[in-house]
Simulated scan of single mutants.
Amino acid sequence: MSNNKEFSSEKSSSVKNVLIIGAGGYIGGALCRKFSQTEDFAALALVRPSSDIEGIKPFCKEIIRSQEADISSNDVAQAIRKHDITTVINVAWHIPLESTKEAQFAFDRVPLEAALHGASAVSPDIHVITTSGNFSLITTNGGRITETPPPKGYILPEYLICLDLLAGVNVLKDGLVEEYISNGGNASIVYPSSVYGSAPTRGGFWDFAIQQFITGKPHQGSQPFPPDFMTAWIHVEDLADCYIGVARFGSKGGHYLAAPENLSVSQVSTLFAEAAQVEFLAPVFENKDKVIFDDSHTRELLQLQWKYKVADEVKGWVERIKELGTYFLD
């Protein structure tokens, strides 16, 4: 029997095979690692021909290369049939981000539609789990944010206009998934809050965003977040447990919010700066829209208990960024 850092080929025959699209990314790599540590699931990765697989190879039962440059529904359908896949998880994002949500959507919809249409071509029982973001849940009036998607045509609060690209592309992607569900497809949506922590592959979006906020300067063309930006935070390991929970207990058309800690960017940046031992005078934060993320319903449905807290993990987060070479605070 291999240790829990590597995929075990000795799992029982009752193990269910999960196909992960976007496995080479930040969240996808964590998913491969976490699934490899379960007794009831095995991870298979569907990657592009050019993808670097060294970081995920120890955790995958199989790594499947797409037949063309982009992953297609035919790739997904073939993988499902050949490997008896029961669940498809799409966490693929086009990086670096495009300048408009329409341009970003043109890239992001390719693996998403491949997952949906590939699964439906094989069996209506194949569960497709897609990923969105908590930015696309926020309503005009703020308040308590749960798993319930906002109504069509809602307007972002003024302080979130800077997130039009991220929120907008998620809304467009969610629309495809909701249409698929309404037509009888077996799919569900996970809404991760802001994700931090280490993963087997590259770093995450917030590695840069927090450092930009501390310096007050743009980095790689992106502006720092506004001082009153309110979000919630989840460690990438806890998020991986959420996806596993959806694979185990999720239902057709389900919506699941993973948002353990309500903290503003100002508050998290203060913790980050302290861990990095850099000077930082945090702006006064006021939660003007009274935004509170509440994922209690998801935790109950999926039998989850969050294990990580930002204050306990931020030092390790800083060290991981230094290891990746994406640390630019002086």
Rank of each mutant, 00 (worst) to 15 (best):
Gln223Trp: 04
Gln303Gly: 04
Asp164Arg: 13
Pro227Cys: 08
Val76Thr: 09
Thr215Gln: 06
Asp108Tyr: 01
Ile63Val: 13
Ser9Gly: 11
Asp295Glu: 04
Ser50Thr: 14
Val265Phe: 08
Leu329Thr: 07
Val88Leu: 04
Asn90Trp: 03
Gln212Phe: 09
Lys34Ile: 03
Tyr26Val: 09
Gly55Asn: 12
Thr130Ile: 02
Ala276His: 00
Pro218Ile: 05
Asn262Phe: 05
Glu54Lys: 15
Arg299Trp: 00
Gly245Ser: 10
Leu165Ile: 15
Ile129Lys: 01
Phe285Cys: 11
Ile64Phe: 03
Val314Cys: 02
Ala114Pro: 06
Phe35Ile: 14
Asp330Phe: 05
Leu97His: 11
Thr100Ala: 09
Ser222Leu: 15
Val236Trp: 01
Leu176Met: 11
Gln305Phe: 05
Phe35Asp: 00
Val88Glu: 09
Gln104Ala: 08
Leu112Val: 05
Ala43Cys: 12
Tyr243Thr: 07
Phe272Ile: 02
Asp312Arg: 12
Ser2Asp: 14
Leu172Phe: 09
Ile155Arg: 13
Thr131Val: 10
Glu98Tyr: 04
Thr146Glu: 05
Gln305Met: 10
Ala106Gln: 11
Ser72Ala: 11
Arg81Ser: 15
Phe208Arg: 14
Arg33Ala: 13
Ser14Met: 11
Pro58Arg: 06
Ala23Tyr: 01
Ser2Leu: 13
Asn141Ser: 12
Gly203Leu: 00
Ala115Asp: 07
Gly250Asn: 08
Asn17Trp: 01
Leu137Thr: 06
Ser198Ala: 15
Leu165Asp: 09
Gln223Val: 07
Arg81Asn: 15
Phe280Trp: 12
Leu97Gln: 10
Ile53Tyr: 02
Val265Asp: 02
Arg48Val: 02
Thr231Ser: 13
Ile63Leu: 01
Val88Pro: 06
Ile321Gly: 03
Ile161Cys: 10
Val318Asn: 02
Leu172Met: 15
Arg299Ala: 06
Asn183Asp: 09
His219Thr: 08
Lys173Trp: 01
Glu158Thr: 13
Phe229Glu: 02
Phe205Thr: 10
Ser193Lys: 01
Ile292Glu: 10
Glu300Met: 03
Asp238Gln: 08
Ser120Cys: 11
Cys32Gly: 00
Tyr256Gln: 03
Asn186Gln: 06
Val265Gly: 07
Glu274Leu: 11
Tyr26His: 14
Glu102Arg: 07
Leu116Gln: 06
Lys307Gln: 15
Arg109Val: 14
Tyr159Phe: 14
Leu257Asn: 00
Gln277Thr: 15
Phe249Ala: 15
Phe293Pro: 01
Lys173Cys: 13
Ala23Met: 05
Val110Trp: 03
